[in-house]
Simulated scan of single mutants.
Amino acid sequence: MLFAVINKDKPDHIHIRLENRPRHLEWLDGLNEKGTLKIAGPFLDAQEKPCGSLLLIEAADQAAAEAIAAEDPYAHAGLFEKVEVKPYKWLYNNPEA
């Protein structure tokens, strides 16, 4: 089952994002190698600076998806103000359909 992980950064925490980006990208690479990660990328503010992120992941259920989201190095570093994990149906342009 697919899940959207929607992360909103805390205001004025771009330094936390930048400091932890290498570990975050390594983590995403690992998810990608396992086939868990489908889509990933940052949301941008008016100045085109990252202010959150969207991940589309595959997990067995809600609890498994939340556990994956909790492993994000950005989450461990305290970057996120809010994290939402929602079931998602990829209807259009799904390469696996």
Rank of each mutant, 00 (worst) to 15 (best):
A4I: 04
D29I: 02
N94I: 13
P95I: 10
H76I: 01
L28D: 11
P87N: 07
N20V: 05
L28S: 13
E33W: 08
R17E: 00
A65T: 14
W90N: 07
M1V: 06
E33A: 09
L54W: 12
L79T: 11
A65N: 12
P95G: 05
P95K: 14
A69V: 07
Q47C: 03
A75W: 11
H13G: 03
F3H: 07
E58W: 04
N20F: 03
A67L: 10
G30W: 01
D45L: 11
E96G: 02
E33C: 08
A59W: 05
Q47D: 15
D61C: 05
L79H: 10
W27L: 01
G52F: 04
P50F: 04
I57W: 05
R21A: 00
M1W: 06
L28W: 00
E84L: 14
E19Q: 15
L37R: 09
A59Q: 07
A77H: 12
L31P: 13
E19P: 02
K82D: 03
Q62T: 12
N7P: 00
A67R: 13
L25W: 03
N32A: 13
V83N: 01
R17H: 14
P22Y: 06
D61R: 07
A70S: 14
E81H: 14
Y92H: 09
N93F: 14
H24I: 00
E26I: 00
M1G: 09
A46N: 14
F80I: 11
E26Y: 01
N94W: 08
N7S: 04
A69Q: 10
H24F: 08
L54E: 08
L79Y: 11
P42E: 02
F3E: 05
L54H: 06
I6V: 13
D72S: 07
L54A: 05
A65H: 14
E81P: 14
I16H: 06
L28P: 10
A97E: 10
L79C: 08
L44G: 03
N93R: 15
A40P: 03
A67E: 15
H24C: 07
N94G: 09
E71S: 15
R17D: 03
L25G: 01
K38I: 14
A75D: 10
N32E: 13
L91K: 07
A63M: 09
K49H: 10
P73M: 04
E26G: 07
N93V: 09
Q47M: 11
Y74G: 04
R21E: 01
N20T: 08
L55R: 12
I16G: 00
D12C: 01
G41D: 01
L79G: 05
K49R: 14
H15S: 15
L91H: 12
E33R: 15
R21Q: 00
S53F: 10
G78D: 08
T36Y: 05
E71M: 10
A77K: 13
E81V: 10
T36P: 11
W90K: 11
E96A: 13
Y92D: 09
A77W: 09
G41E: 03
L18C: 07
V85R: 04
E66P: 10
A67T: 14
P73L: 09
